[in-house]
Amino acid sequence: MLKFLSKYPPLKQLKMSFGVQRFMLILGLSIVSFFILVAIFADFIAPYGFAQLQYENGEYFGSQIAPGGSHIWGTTVGGFDVFSRVVYGTRTAIAVIVVAVILSILVGVLLGLLSGYFAGWLDRILVLVADAVYAFPSLLLAISLSIVISGGRSGFWSGILAAGLSITVIFIPQYYRAMRAETLRIKQEAFVESAQVLGASSFRILFRHIFRNATRTLPIIFTLNASEAILTLAGLGFLGFGIDPTMGAEWGYDLNRSVADVSAGIWWTSIFPGSAIVLVVLGITLVGESLNDLADPRLRKRQVAEIE
């Protein structure tokens, strides 16, 4: 099983890596795995629910309680348990990533493949649109979409969909560009021309010869996409367009609520969710950067040889 998996990213790259690059890749993978585990086992890790305000006995937690005792990271101004909300926040983050990535890969890859292969006027129009959308501030688009989808105040899934969709719109151009560039490159290769000389159908050329050879850059964009997704979700939450606190835990919203706390010297309501964002994005970006380095022979580090 491991041997089979080791042919695919990121394990394939792990085998090739060395030194600093290996360290960065391992660090990134560890952080990401840690958060995935936390998301899966959130119910067991978190002592309270993300929207819970009271103990079993009906007594309220109280607001802005300093860390310690039954609230190891304290409580928020709204009276939620900070630790539980940070833990449940991983679920939200990962759900957004999954939605955003699946949607944008599906659309972007297909468009890139077709546009790169058939060229012509469709290609030119798509390039223009992709460039225009790419230049659009993603947060502004996300805000607009979240207004559209949920009127600005969201439940768990509508909030995730709003963040996910807006990121999708921003990222389709990136997948599209990468896939188109790869398709254009591979189209020039002799084995594709060979298939053309033979009279293979476009469908056969696209899917038998180009598609699988063109997917090598996807893991890299995937990681970029994922970290951007989390940052956009947090930005939305911070501006008050995220997920309603009773519907799901979301770090950006919690930070928004902690703005006033900060001036009063209450640090625990912002430091923990903020650090969670930083760590997840850091982990994913480390993986992406390492994959990028290892995919590019010019950026790849090799061990210094020994003379036998």
Binding site: S227, L231, A234, G235, F238, G252, L255, S258, V259, V262, S263, G265, W267, S270, I271, G274, I277, V278, L279, V281, L282, T285, L286, E289
Partner: peptide, 20 residues
């Protein structure tokens, strides 16, 4: 990577914690 990974409003909050 840290500079990119830290949301700008979180940097803001941290700076406020320190300087306010």
């Amino acid at each position: 990577i840290l500079a990119y990974a830290t949301p700008v409003f979180f940097v803001g909050l941290l700076l406020k914690l320190v300087f306010a």
